[in-house]
C-alpha cells in the first residue's frame, strides 16, 4: 500500500460520508444534535482539498495532515476523535513509503487506541468504538490466520457493520446521546455508522 492507495482510501471515505450526509444527520437528530453529517462532510471536503493542494508524499505524512485538517475543521466531538485516530495512525505508519498488511493492521489499532484515550469510551457505550473495536480485532485475527488482505479487510468491514448494528439497542453512556438515558436505546449510533464508511472505503480501495 503506497501513498496513492492511502489517498484513494481517504477520498473514498469522503465520498461515502458526503453521499450519506443526510442519513448521518438523521441518525444524529434522533439521539444527538443533528450535525454529524454536516460536520464530517465539511471536514472531509477540507481534507480532499488539502490532498489536492499539498500532495503529501508518504502514507504517514498523508495521515498526519488528514488528522490535523479534521481537528481544525470538524469541531464537536468527532473532530478531536477522528483527528486523534489519524494522527496516531500516522505515527504508527512510520517513515515507510509503502506499508505491508501487518503494519496497516497495527496502524488501525493505534487509531483505535487514540480514540479510546481521547474519548475515554468503552466498548458498549454506544459510540464509534463499538464499530472500530470489532473491526480491528477481526483484521488482526484474519490476517494472523493467513487470510489474504482483501478478504481480511472484508471480514473487518463485516465485523464493524455488525458492531454498528449492535449499537441500536444500547443505552448511550458517552457523548450527547447519554443525556437521553433509556431514550437513547432503539437508535443506531451515528459515530459507529461513519466508522463503517471508513472501513468500507478501505475495503474497496486498499485491496486492489
Amino acid at each position: 500500500m503506497d501513498t496513492a492507495a492511502f489517498s484513494a482510501w481517504i477520498r473514498e471515505f469522503a465520498r461515502l460520508v458526503g453521499q450519506n450526509k443526510d442519513y448521518l444527520t438523521e441518525l444524529d437528530s434522533a439521539i444527538g444534535d443533528a450535525d454529524h453529517g454536516a460536520n464530517m462532510t465539511r471536514g472531509l471536503n477540507a481534507v480532499v482539498k488539502m490532498l489536492d493542494e499539498e500532495k503529501p508524499d508518504t502514507p504517514s505524512a498523508l495521515l498526519k495532515r488528514t488528522g490535523m485538517t479534521l481537528v481544525s475543521t470538524v469541531g464537536g466531538a468527532s473532530g478531536p476523535l477522528y483527528g486523534t485516530a489519524f494522527l496516531r495512525m500516522a505515527a504508527a505508519a512510520g517513515d515507510a513509503e509503502t506499508l505491508d498488511d501487518g503494519t496497516f493492521a497495527k496502524m488501525l489499532r493505534a487509531g483505535l487506541d487514540g480514540v479510546l484515550a481521547r474519548g475515554k469510551a468503552q466498548l458498549g457505550d454506544k459510540t464509534m468504538v463499538d464499530a472500530l473495536t470489532p473491526a480491528v480485532d477481526a483484521l488482526d485475527a484474519t490476517l494472523a490466520a493467513g487470510m489474504p488482505f482483501p478478504d481480511a479487510m472484508q471480514a473487518a468491514l463485516r465485523a464493524g457493520e455488525e458492531g454498528r448494528d449492535a449499537t441500536v439497542p444500547l443505552v448511550a453512556r458517552k457523548g450527547r446521546a447519554s443525556y437521553l438515558g433509556e431514550r437513547s436505546a432503539g437508535h443506531q449510533d451515528p459515530g459507529a455508522t461513519s466508522v463503517t464508511m471508513l472501513l468500507a472505503a478501505a475495503a474497496t480501495t486498499l485491496t486492489a
Partner: peptide, 11 residues
C-alpha cells in the same frame, strides 16, 4: 464561535 451547536476547533 463554532458552527451551529458544534464546538469550535482547537486552533
Amino acid at each position: 464561535a463554532g458552527e451551529i451547536f458544534t464546538s469550535p476547533v482547537p486552533d
